[in-house]
């Protein structure tokens, strides 16, 4: 995080030395883009806060399925529907594994959490378009399923 600020400061400085006008123009473009998208980010934050409140209990309850396949499905659906920062998601994943939840279920959950964003739609569609967003998330969901199954194979949870 501090790194980001240092890099930005250095680049702005270098840019200023190279060409003042261009730098001012660049920063202006950045600010304009930020102002344009800000309301969508705010909407996203509200959605996340609400959905996370309702799903936290569900995650602990439904991921510990006896049936691995159902567990993966539950994990992937919940993972797609929610969003969490890594410093919340991984400790939670650690707790799940300790409680005996299968690695492949945790993998399905964590991977969709990161790759598939139903909640990020209001932001993603501004940059990728509606169809582009839907296709990207669809493909990501399939990839997440393959990763979950591969994890099951590597951890000996799926017998081939």
């Amino acid at each position: 995080m501090i790194g980001l600020y240092i890099v930005t400061a250095v680049l702005v400085l270098v840019s200023l030395i190279a060409d003042r006008q261009k730098t001012v123009k660049g920063i202006r473009i950045g600010v304009k883009k930020f102002r344009k998208i800000l309301p969508n980010y705010l909407k996203l934050l509200i959605l996340i806060a609400i959905v996370l409140f309702f799903t936290e209990g569900l995650i602990v309850r439904y991921l510990g399925q006896e049936n691995g396949l159902l567990g993966i499905m539950a994990g992937m659906l919940l993972g797609s529907a929610t969003m969490m920062p890594g410093f919340i998601a991984y400790p939670l994943a650690g707790v799940l594994v300790e409680r005996g939840v299968l690695y492949m279920v945790v993998a399905g959950f964590v991977t969709t959490l990161m790759m598939v964003g139903v909640l990020t739609y209001p932001v993603e569609k501004e940059y990728m378009g509606a169809k582009g967003t839907i296709i990207r998330n669809g493909v990501s969901f399939v990839i997440a399923a393959v990763i979950a199954l591969a994890m099951g194979v590597f951890y000996g949870e799926v017998i081939l």
């Binding site: 995080m1 980001l4 660049g26 950045g30 883009k33 980010y41 934050l45 996340i48 920062p85």
Partner: peptide, 25 residues
Amino acid sequence: NFYLFAKDMVLILPPAFILIGLFDV
């Protein structure tokens, strides 16, 4: 929950968008 995410975004987005602007020019 809101605070958790908002804190990160408030810190990350402004420099990120400045970099995007510089990239653009």
